[in-house]
Design a protein around this nucleic acid. Structure first.
Length: 420
DNA sequence: TCTGGGGTCCTAGGACCC
DNA sequence: TCTGGGGTCCTAGGACCC
């Protein structure tokens, strides 16, 4: 059986853990750049505020004091997530961390009648030790555990735990689950399903396998099997990410190549730092630029390009200069850019780098590697005290809106002092 | 005025091989 | 006039997730 533990309204719950005055009130947390709503408390959901709503549409509610708002504070959320996961790890033979706020516990070898008491203890302990409310879904497949979790969240009667352990419960649950609530059925497929007369998860699970295969391929069949109680999704044990991307929208649009290059340098430097933190190197760097897609009156342009290294690398100098060359190539004047990003790909273990027989840059690269190591030693907190001259002066978050950010209560010493 | 960011997997089609 | 068959690898784009 699988236990899916999912934190309730995670970002809002993190804010509340340190700001109890937000308890019981309508709260939303915003995306980067204070762009749109990415987390809602139950109270703000009840007010009809939808996921992804642009902030300016609910701003009047904030101004009139009805709705409380916070900018996203990923340092805080990341730290509380790690604390939650460390508690979960004690309960399961195997823990699969699926996202910042949820994890599957693979309960092989544990009697089914033990699972509900375990789930109750998880809820109690995470709430007491970290201050975060969680819900638990229990079922024989991950997809069904997701379904169970929905019920655990939605109906207070379950007190946070819902189990699907018989065929009768499975059928009942699937009948009550709209097709677009199913894990793996997204916004592109859902309308097609409805058109084909499929409204619930049960309708879907009852179609013949060939029907699903034809329309949705192997991925659809996997979801279909899982809903029928046959576990087929396997968690890949992956040691390192395959791509790392750093991108941001700008508070204001940018037309100037110089200004754009400063931002791209920052993004590239962050990618390089993330690579080194994981002991990885990248063989390819990509850059993309984006005009403002919401402005019909402006010319649209979404260029992107790649550059490959002869020898994979993780030093800031090489990755930044590659990103800047690409930017110069794809840049076109007269466009007002709203967003840009850097992606590093072909990521490999930095300990086993394949050398190049005709490597002419070896010494230069090794020098750059040493410089990056020193930068990391100085920039311990993640702040860029040492940076390349082509990066921006000041903090990289400048030019990104963040008007309602709470303190980094659990990690930042100076901010802890402010509380006292 | 204001509209997020970071990932994964699969597939079709092109390039290439013998 | 006739012009094969069977593979692999890579890439861009689509769909999905939180």
């Amino acid at each position: 059986m699988f236990l899916l533990v999912d934190c309730n309204n995670f970002f809002v719950s993190c804010e509340r853990a340190f700001q109890p005055q937000l308890e019981g009130k309508p709260v939303v947390v915003l995306s980067n750049n204070d762009g749109c709503v990415v987390a809602r408390s139950n109270e703000s959901k009840a007010m009809g505020i939808k996921m992804g709503t642009p902030f300016f549409k609910v701003r009047p509610l904030v101004d009139s004091g009805v709705l409380h708002v916070r900018s996203s504070n990923y340092t805080l959320y990341g730290d509380l997530s790690a604390r939650v996961m460390s508690i979960l790890r004690e309960f399961a033979p195997k823990l699969e961390i699926y996202s910042i706020d949820e994890a599957f516990l693979v309960m092989d070898g544990i009697p089914v009648d033990r699972l509900i008491p375990i789930a109750r203890e998880i809820i109690r302990r995470v709430r007491r030790w970290v201050g975060i409310p969680v819900s638990v879904g229990i079922a024989p497949t991950r997809t069904l555990a997701k379904v169970a979790n929905h019920f655990a969240k939605r109906y207070p009667g379950y007190k946070g735990v819902c189990v699907i352990d018989t065929d009768e419960k499975r059928r009942k649950a699937l009948n009550l689950t709209p097709i677009d609530d199913v894990w793996g059925i997204g916004w592109r497929s859902a309308p097609k399903m409805v058109k084909a007369g499929i409204h619930t998860a049960a309708d879907f699970a009852e179609r013949p396998q060939e029907w699903v295969q034809e329309r949705m391929g192997i991925i659809g069949v996997r979801t279909w099997m899982e809903l029928r109680g046959i576990p087929v999704i396997v968690e890949e044990e992956r040691e390192r990410r395959q791509t790392i991307c750093t991108s941001r929208s700008f508070a204001d649009m940018i037309s100037d190549l110089e200004e754009l290059s400063l931002r791209v340098s920052d993004f590239a430097a962050i990618c390089a730092r993330k690579l080194r933190d994981e002991g990885s190197v990248a063989g390819t760097v990509g850059v993309f630029l984006m005009s403002n897609r919401f402005r019909d009156d402006l010319e649209q342009y979404f260029p992107q390009d790649l550059e490959r290294f002869d020898v994979p690398t993780s030093n800031t100098s090489d990755i930044v200069s590659a990103a800047l060359r690409i930017t110069k190539r794809i840049y076109r004047g007269g466009i007002r850019y709203k967003k840009a990003g850097v992606i590093v790909m072909d990521i490999k273990d930095g300990r086993y780098v394949q050398p190049d027989l005709f490597d002419e840059r070896k010494q230069e690269r090794e020098k750059n590697d040493r410089i990056s190591r020193i930068m990391d030693e100085v920039n311990v907190t993640g702040r860029q005290y040492l940076r390349l001259a082509v990066q921006r002066p000041g903090h990289y978050a400048d030019g990104i809106r963040m008007e309602h950010r709470s303190q980094r209560f659990s990690t930042d010493w100076s901010e802890l002092m402010e509380i006292h």
